[in-house]
Design a protein around this nucleic acid. Structure first.
Lengths: 341, 341
DNA sequence: AATCGCGTTCAAACCGCTTTGAATGACCCC
DNA sequence: GGGGTCATTCAAAGCGGTTTGAACGCGATT
């Protein structure tokens, strides 16, 4: 059943039927009801492809997921982020398009999205410092929202981010307050912007207490269980090992825990651990009492916010670049305790 | 730059230009080259929306992700699956559409995908036994491939699945060979088809050695770290605790490890553990030596296979329903050892 | 010379909607 | 009664491609 057929059944022109269904004011209320009833009865759904061509809008949002050709890492927070974003899209009648792209090919993909008109806007994931994708998107004129920020990027742009610096500042201060002086940092790769912000927060907290940051107990690696294990073993083998560890993800935390266990050390008693917890739905930090003391910020919520923001940019509801900074909570779990050094 | 403009520049009709670019045989080779050169020079990309309307094909594949309204679980294997599928789609010029849908609404979404013509086919995720979605998709005439299978579903359908029964059969036999007689099962929710197949494999292995399955050491829960912890604590507190555990996911395995540690037990020495490992890119099972002994099968590869299969169904390359059963490897790690009971 | 076939190109219809601009008729006012 | 306003409806022209059916030029066939 298409519009023309429906119109014929109703003895109306396609014009009127279309307007009736789309809520235009110039149709008689009685007519509108008749049309609505018939549409329902014949289960009429307008063809998406035709709407898109006619309106020139794609009614779709793109998420370009760069897959590192070398690292082969699919970011684990990604699933939750799009779950949040997806909720918002479907509420607003938008489709969500995913492009899995080798990361050396991203520019071409954006250019094609633009010239083929497949999407109305995109979400930019995992920004690096001075990320070249941002000026590119600005140049192409594609509406976009960044999940995260990119230090050193000139043009203004819209973003949703966690206050990573403050989160790690507070976490570090909390450990300092517990008496820890040797605090190891297990960070993500520092080409990613958030990793740099987290390190800065950590360093600032140390500096404010006059403690020099020690590169020997600061690592920047992929955020995997295995990397957490390896880094922990290495740090704990130092002549002057840390008494506390601060990690950029709960997955690293699992690796830390395994390493400590293998060395016969108890987390929370012998070594304090704080992790960043993205509140992933399939990786909850314990049930009633959190396993890890953590800086927590729901990445799913970030997905919702970013999607909302993007839609209001696409629809022209807002014009200036939007910014939204989410604060992480510091939640106390079983993995921290006073320093007994 | 659109087709008409390009045609005008070339002093050709849109018809010929279109045919030249789409490889139709009736265009003069010299003309074709002239067209190709101009298309490249003016960076002409045909508008996706127009192609879709004209051809009646969506050139897109849908993935409907049911989000359990109660459990709030986004399946962690999902990110890797679509990473694999996405590779195949982009190679073939298809878009990947994601719908995040409350699971009480799935039927409506499929009907809309059909009547609005948004996609050419779908991948069905996380099938339950006698899953009603399968007959629905057959009825609607939407091409689809199931990731997994659904026992007790009447109509034939295409699927890609791991041989879950055999994987767990072999894992159980391996533990039995090590002398274990009390083997606990930490399974996923048994409304999901794969969970039932895994239990069957486990039970069959026990039965073949004349060991009765004991419901006290068999749980079926969400596959989270916390659930793994809880179940392990409960089982180990029994008067007759298991000496080995078999778990449906590596995430459960992390919970098992934490529980054992809390009880002062060493994994691999005091209690043997085998997990199923989906070979997630962000959750590798150790680096050189696997941490967990595991039944391993790459879910990313499954994504590739499913996408390939779906595309050949959509394009009519194959007509009969296709089936593909992947075998899991049994890889030996540090979490298993002889029973010392 | 008329006919045929072949290779190549084109005009126009079509896909299913939206949207512009015009038409219709009822009602009101002077 | 003529003109103006207003509410309502419609025909037709897009949107940017694909595809059908026809046309054209030219060498080969009869």
């Amino acid at each position: 059943m298409n519009l023309k057929e429906l119109a014929r059944k109703l003895d109306l022109s396609p014009t009127t039927v279309s307007r009736a269904l789309n809520g235009y004011p110039e149709v008689n209320e009685a007519t509108r009801e008749r049309v609505a009833a018939a549409a329902k009865r014949y289960n009429y759904k307008p063809n998406t492809r035709a709407i898109r061509l006619a309106t020139g809008r794609a009614m779709a949002v793109g998420h370009v997921i760069p897959v590192a050709t070398r690292h082969e890492i699919v970011n684990p927070v990604f699933a939750d982020f799009i779950a949040g974003a997806g909720e918002v899209y479907s509420r607003n009648g938008y489709d969500m398009l995913l492009s899995i792209v080798p990361d050396d090919n991203e520019e071409r993909v954006y250019r094609e999205l633009k010239s083929r008109g497949t999407v109305d806007g995109v979400i930019l994931h995992a920004p690096n410092t001075e990320d070249p994708r941002i000026p590119l998107l600005v140049e192409l004129g594609i509406p976009f929202v960044v999940h995260g920020r990119a230090t050193g990027t000139a043009p203004p742009y819209s973003w949703v981010d966690v206050n990573n610096r403050r989160a790690f500042l507070r976490a570090t201060e909390f450990l300092l307050d517990l008496g820890h002086r040797r605090i190891g940092l297990l960070n993500g790769l520092e080409k990613m912007d958030f990793a740099i912000r987290r390190r800065t927060g950590y360093e600032d907290a140390l500096a404010s207490r006059g403690i020099p940051a020690d590169p020997e107990i600061m690592v920047s690696e992929e955020m995997t269980e295995a990397a957490g294990y390896r880094a922990t073993r290495a740090m704990m083998a130092l002549p002057n090992p840390p008494t506390a560890l601060l990690a950029s993800s709960i997955i690293i935390g699992f690796g830390i825990r395994r390493a400590l266990e293998d060395m016969g050390l108890a987390m929370g008693r012998d070594v304090s651990v704080i992790v960043h917890d993205d509140d992933l739905s399939y990786m909850r930090n314990g049930e009633d009492v959190p396993v890890f003391t953590a800086t927590r910020s729901s990445v799913r919520e970030a997905g919702r916010r970013a999607a909302d923001m993007l839609i209001s940019i696409i629809t022209g509801k807002v014009l200036a670049p939007q910014e939204q900074l989410l604060e992480a909570e510091l939640i106390i779990g079983q993995s921290t305790g006073p320093c007994k050094g």
